[in-house]
């Protein structure tokens, strides 16, 4: 087997960090799709369509989206064990 010379990585790591989540952000009908939550979400996993859509596969549940939402449209709900 021919090995490359050097220390390198090419595989994109993709940890399913959604499993970490203790509290789940739930978007309510108060959402105006303003996009503020998406802007500040550290993993950038909120899509804005007619309202905010959160990718729960990766959402760690930090709650920043809830904290920055001017319309109180996101509620943090405890994940069931």
């Amino acid at each position: 087997m021919k090995h490359k010379a050097g220390i390198y990585a090419v595989t994109i790591t993709d940890t399913k960090t959604g499993a970490w989540r203790l509290n789940r952000p739930v978007v309510s009908e108060k959402c105006t799709a303003c996009g503020i939550c998406a802007k500040f979400c550290p993993p950038q996993i909120i899509k804005i369509e007619d309202r905010a859509i959160i990718d729960y596969e990766y959402c760690k549940g930090c709650g920043i989206c809830d904290s920055v939402c001017p319309f109180k449209a996101i509620a943090m709900v405890e994940e069931e064990a």
Partner: peptide, 17 residues
């Protein structure tokens, strides 16, 4: 990558992205 093992609410992650 979407799935990074940074801490919850990490400011650096937002900066990097």
């Amino acid at each position: 990558s979407k799935g990074l093992t940074t801490c919850e609410g990490c400011g650096m992650e937002l900066i990097a992205r």
